[in-house]
């Protein structure tokens, strides 16, 4: 009789890395549908190309370096969708492919692959694309609005920052019939994804809620329109899908609160006082960088441990 002898425990839970990533993919479906309805079929084309190139780059990199192939874990698919969510529908296809290369090869794989990236790959790629091809990355189309009026400016947030012309109404911003990158315009679709992610325990609601709440409260405090600040830009997309990336967000409950508030403060400062209308990407990126410190400073107190755990070194 040949028996397997292994260390306990001898059973494991159902959740796997792949099942988590699949749920994130499902959570993005409402926003994908919204992007197609708002921006047309090109939105789907960009998403498909982005996903395909992310998966291909991951496979090729791992194959080339003779590392275990991890494309089955769906994390590259998630990165691909999120990257597409961060570009306007008019972006040349080849630029998305460049973005995928930056996200997967530079930000993810060069730092050691899944679990080791210092920043969210899709977000870092968005920033690099934005810096490299600023005009293409802000070439918004003007979708048919729910209210029927043509929107005078690109994104509601830009319009608001420039103080130019008419603002889209709240319903347009909520449904998503405004200018912007693919995934950010429809608050409704993003919120459906958010509810799904929280209900299936893929993410904790703490980061998105503290992030959005901080932005809203500060907006009121600084006498800018909190509705436009919350619905008019990339805040919900960033808060729900980008800031909750496991590897680049704190894993303690206290840390998540600090992380959310930090992003909220930076976002509002950039939007209100900076030269850019949008600040979500940089806010998340900056907070990504301090995650190791947040984790360290917000450790739980173990049961029975002294009230103040002495810091090593």
């Amino acid at each position: 009789m040949k028996l397997v002898v292994s260390s306990s425990p001898h059973i494991t839970g159902k959740e796997t890395t792949a099942s988590i990533m699949q749920k994130v993919v499902i959570a993005t479906v409402p926003a994908i549908i919204a992007s197609v309805l708002v921006f047309g079929f090109r939105a789907l084309l960009l998403t498909a190309v982005s996903v395909a190139s992310c998966v291909a780059f991951e496979y090729l990199y791992e194959k080339l370096l003779k590392k275990p192939i991890t494309v089955n874990d769906f994390s590259a698919v998630v990165t691909g969708i999120l990257l597409a969510f961060n570009v306007p529908s008019t972006l040349p296809i080849w630029m998305v492919v460049v973005g995928a290369a930056v996200a997967i090869v530079v930000v993810k794989q060069l730092f050691g692959g899944i679990g080791f990236n210092f920043a969210n790959p899709a977000l870092a790629a968005r920033i690099i694309l934005g810096l490299s091809w600023t005009s293409q990355m802000t070439a918004w189309v003007f979708p048919k609005t729910f209210s029927g009026d043509a929107v005078a400016s690109a994104t509601p947030l830009t319009a608001y920052a420039n103080g130019a012309g008419e603002m889209p109404n709240i319903l347009d911003m909520f449904i998503g019939t405004t200018g912007g990158v693919l995934g950010e315009t429809s608050a409704l679709a993003l919120l459906i994804g958010f509810v799904f992610l929280v209900a299936t325990k893929v993410i904790s609601p703490v980061i998105p809620v503290t992030y959005v709440a901080t932005v809203a409260v500060l907006a009121v405090f600084l006498r800018v329109d909190p509705v436009v600040y919350v619905l008019g830009g990339g805040l919900l997309l960033g808060a729900i899908f980008m800031a909750t990336d496991y590897t680049t967000s704190p894993y303690t409950a206290k840390g998540k609160i600090i992380f959310g508030i930090g992003m909220g403060v930076i976002t509002v400062i950039i939007r209100r006082y900076g030269s850019m209308a949008e600040g979500v990407s940089y806010a998340i990126l900056l907070m990504n960088l301090v995650v190791p410190y947040i984790n360290r400073c917000t450790r739980q107190r173990p049961l029975g441990a002294p009230k103040k755990v002495k810091e090593a070194k």
Partner: peptide, 17 residues
């Protein structure tokens, strides 16, 4: 598989480790 730093082990640990 590689650790994805999801923090589930931290949330689960009954001792808060």
């Amino acid at each position: 598989n590689p650790c994805i730093r999801c923090g589930r082990c931290i949330s689960a640990c009954p001792m808060g480790l």
